[in-house]
Amino acid sequence: MGRMTARPLLALLTALALPALAAAPATPAGVCKGTIYLTFDTGSQSQAELIADVLKRHHIKATFFLANEKTVRGDYSLDPAWSAYWKARVAEGHAFGSHTFDHDVLAGEKDGQFRVKPGFGASAGKLRSLTPDQYCDEIKRVDRRFVELTGVHLDPLWRAPAGRTSPRTVAAAKACGYAHVGWAPAGFSGDELSSTAYPNPVLLQKSLRDLRSGDIFVAHMGIWSRKDAWAPANLEPLISGLEQKGFCFATLREHPDYSSLFKSR
């Protein structure tokens, strides 16, 4: 075989490299311009499968916050019927936190107790009082059910329903091992708002314009009240748009504010 000259050799190497370049992701590992932390709270679960499919297609790990909410199937999101769904998300490497078992929205404090209005359960829609220990147990109830469904524990994270906290609720949760997670102002998806007043294209444009590296983004796995669901129209365009800007995605296990919670695990 004769000696190959420099020019043909260069052409051959270029041709061999082209398939690899074509297969490379839009944002190769190690060259991210920033990181966005996608999080999803349970809801009607009407978008549960779509969300899982989109995340899997884009090889993205997210963080899910779970409450035992009524679903479009007529059951509840932490019923045994959802075991296979949550097991699959565990296998994919997502992170999981508590959203309180009955979706207890903080309404105030009185006589050292927390006044909450559960969205579900025996006291749904009624105000009830919880001691700090009882409030903590509402957070931990999700963990106990998640172990029953999947065989693994939640991560030491929780998100207050409606984002309503007080220094004492945050302290109560911290005392039993859970750090609170909110979201960035730019990370509010708007999927709970009226789709007439806040149509999906407007919400998408806002997110793509305003999200910055380090932001925590929140959406729901289905909202009963929104006429035009957010996820089918916006989730994949949002991810693709952020990827084109050079952003990568990670779970809250990698977030600088929470990563220290996992170092001893």
Rank of each mutant, 00 (worst) to 15 (best):
L154Y: 01
L154K: 10
L154A: 02
L154D: 09
D155H: 01
D155A: 01
D155G: 11
D155N: 10
D155T: 07
D155S: 02
P156H: 00
P156R: 01
L157Y: 13
A160N: 05
A160K: 08
P161M: 13
P161H: 07
A162T: 02
A162I: 06
G163E: 06
G163I: 01
R164H: 15
T165H: 06
T165Y: 05
S166M: 10
S166T: 15
P167K: 03
R168L: 10
R168Q: 11
T169A: 04
T169W: 06
V170E: 13
A172W: 03
A173F: 08
A173Q: 02
A173C: 14
K174L: 08
K174W: 04
A175I: 12
C176Y: 08
C176D: 03
C176Q: 06
C176T: 11
Y178H: 12
Y178E: 03
Y178V: 10
A179L: 00
A179G: 07
H180L: 06
H180V: 09
V181G: 02
W183F: 14
W183R: 03
A184D: 13
A184N: 09
A184Q: 12
A186M: 04
G187F: 05
G187T: 12
G187Y: 07
F188E: 13
S189I: 02
S189G: 10
G190R: 04
G190W: 08
D191Q: 12
D191E: 09
E192T: 15
L193H: 12
L193D: 15
L193P: 02
S194W: 10
S194G: 09
S194K: 14
S194T: 09
S195E: 15
T196E: 15
T196D: 15
T196H: 14
A197N: 08
Y198E: 14
Y198T: 13
